[in-house]
Design a protein around this nucleic acid. Sequence first.
DNA 1: GTAGGGAACGTTAACGGTTCAGAAGACCAT
DNA 2: ATGGTCTTCTGAACCGTTAACGTTCCCTAC
Lengths: 367, 367
Amino acid sequence: MRTRRQATLASLAAELGVSRTTVSNAYNRPDQLSPELRHRVLETARKLGYPGPDPVARSLRTRKAGAIGLLLTENLSYAFRDPAALGVLEGLALACEDAGVGVQLLPARPGTSDVAGVHRAGVDGFVVYSVPDDDPHLLAVLQRPVPTVIIDQPVLPEIDRVGPDDAAAITTLAYHLIELGHREIGVLCMRLSRERRDGFVSLARQREAHYHVQRTRLIALAEAFETVGVDWSTVPVVERFEHTLDDGASAARQLLDANPQVTALICTSDILALGALAEAQRRSLRVPADLTVTGFDGIDAAEHAGLTTVSQSVREKGRSAGELLLDPTRRTNAGPPSAQVITLETELWTGKTSAPPRTAEQHWFGP
Amino acid sequence: MRTRRQATLASLAAELGVSRTTVSNAYNRPDQLSPELRHRVLETARKLGYPGPDPVARSLRTRKAGAIGLLLTENLSYAFRDPAALGVLEGLALACEDAGVGVQLLPARPGTSDVAGVHRAGVDGFVVYSVPDDDPHLLAVLQRPVPTVIIDQPVLPEIDRVGPDDAAAITTLAYHLIELGHREIGVLCMRLSRERRDGFVSLARQREAHYHVQRTRLIALAEAFETVGVDWSTVPVVERFEHTLDDGASAARQLLDANPQVTALICTSDILALGALAEAQRRSLRVPADLTVTGFDGIDAAEHAGLTTVSQSVREKGRSAGELLLDPTRRTNAGPPSAQVITLETELWTGKTSAPPRTAEQHWFGP
DNA sequence: GTAGGGAACGTTAACGGTTCAGAAGACCAT
DNA sequence: ATGGTCTTCTGAACCGTTAACGTTCCCTAC
């Protein structure tokens, strides 16, 4: 320990009068040398303070780093507070733990286009989650000659992808509301670009959103409601850059202040929806009698609150991504294996926060 | 991309008819070569599909991996659900992000003594959090010739440590209860060893607990209460292996069933305390009138619930550890810098869950 | 005319391992 | 004596880069 970095495999071999190969074998292939010699090697190593083969040198030679990189350009503080992101992280970590590889959180500050962190990461593959389509870090990852799995991102040629069918999932939710009779709706969504732009969202901005998931959901919602005669250009959509309960509440406030006629608030995440519920309570709006509120994700808190939402197993998402990346049966034969696209199940949870609108109720069930 | 791993710095150099150094400089020291040549190098690289210098080879040469390892032998599923652990992770990640280095979650399955993951990790240092004193992974980390910072672990010679003064902190809490008049207390604590052993804890087991934090708190509590004449051997202590609200509730139930005379429940974590509150409610015990409950950590949920607890900034804990590990002003000159021990502030939050016991109240304020 | 100095690029020597094809010797059967 | 098979260990070739100096060349100043 004193002698910083003195003992090396070669010096140990010299000390013992054996070859480097033998020392290496003592650590990696005990069956390749006699037990006595092996014991002698290990003993001398201890005496000399040799800590065992250097991991980096080994990685260089074996071309295995024993870790995968996770790209997450969301502000870390929020990522660690967002149950959905945590679920993905947990699932991924579990899959990696099973395979004995580490998970490296890449250093990638949200606003920055400094991708050195991606270039410097000694990893065997990447998982990319929740980044805008045009993120420079994502581009840098795709440049690297290692397998990559993207989660909740647009399908890319030759790149594995894991995620739910967002369009189908939210369409189911939309029809749930349509059948209840809602036509005056409002939407609360998460950030649509890397720049903060809180407030009402133009149609063009919806179409050009850089976050795949948000864009997909908005477009699918528009399609569903236009089918039943709603003019989407009149539907208020409010965006929030941050993703907290408070932001959900303030977005709901902004939307309802300007559009009191709205009977249903569709939120693209449970967090936003739970925030909206809080705002509804503050306004003394009864849910679902006066206002229907829906979420997306199916986090524990949503279930607890009885929120109507679309549930997806975020843990499964992370786990699938990890297993896909680490699956040894792939990447074996030459040539890139055809990219795999895994579509995860979603389920509509009909909770206590959705009901027919007051007018529709009267229309349908009234005298 | 097709030609898996063909282009290398050397082949590029050959193709261009320049030296390897020049190619290397094109990437790492643009000022060391003419802009034209640099452009030509980068252009040819693009054409040949050379993805830039290999991170592992670079790490070997520069002796910098650009990442630190985080050892967390807690079951990952629980670590990612525990607000305290998440706070540490967040603080650490932020500090590392600022420094442009990654955080690698080491593969270390809780029960296992397979420390290969620790040996194989190419990292510049380690942070160890929440592991038992005798964890084989911790031992393996200490073997590695890289700087290490331990959090909430017993002080080790020559090893940096970050953490609160647990003994002092909980002693303050103890005297708060003592001054309120509590003498019949019970304790709920987290796991004391790697083996699951839910239930009442013997005195010996308290003394021999392998989790530093738990042991320290128990011992400090014992000292404080013995000072005022309480015979600690009569104080019921209930242990739970898992760390959830439900476990807190069941521990409280177990303790109160056997010891109905208890007037105060001291919990070594907020999660356990919040669970205990739920159990108190189920029993129709009024808190704090019938039962005082205290926690430890000061997580958001505790503040929200008005819990009497000791608050510590877990985020600061992670951040300090990261900064300590990455501080470039240390490790410069030869010789190991004397180990640093950073003691973080704690604060007693007197919430709405602590009050004088019924009997004492009568005794002190009654007629 | 030459000393001095910087810009631009090259040479050499690690960095610390793993791997594969043997070599040397021992043991055994023919 | 021959050949075959094990076991045990070695030699040399990589893995892909960067650090520390050198070298060359051109330009300027005195």
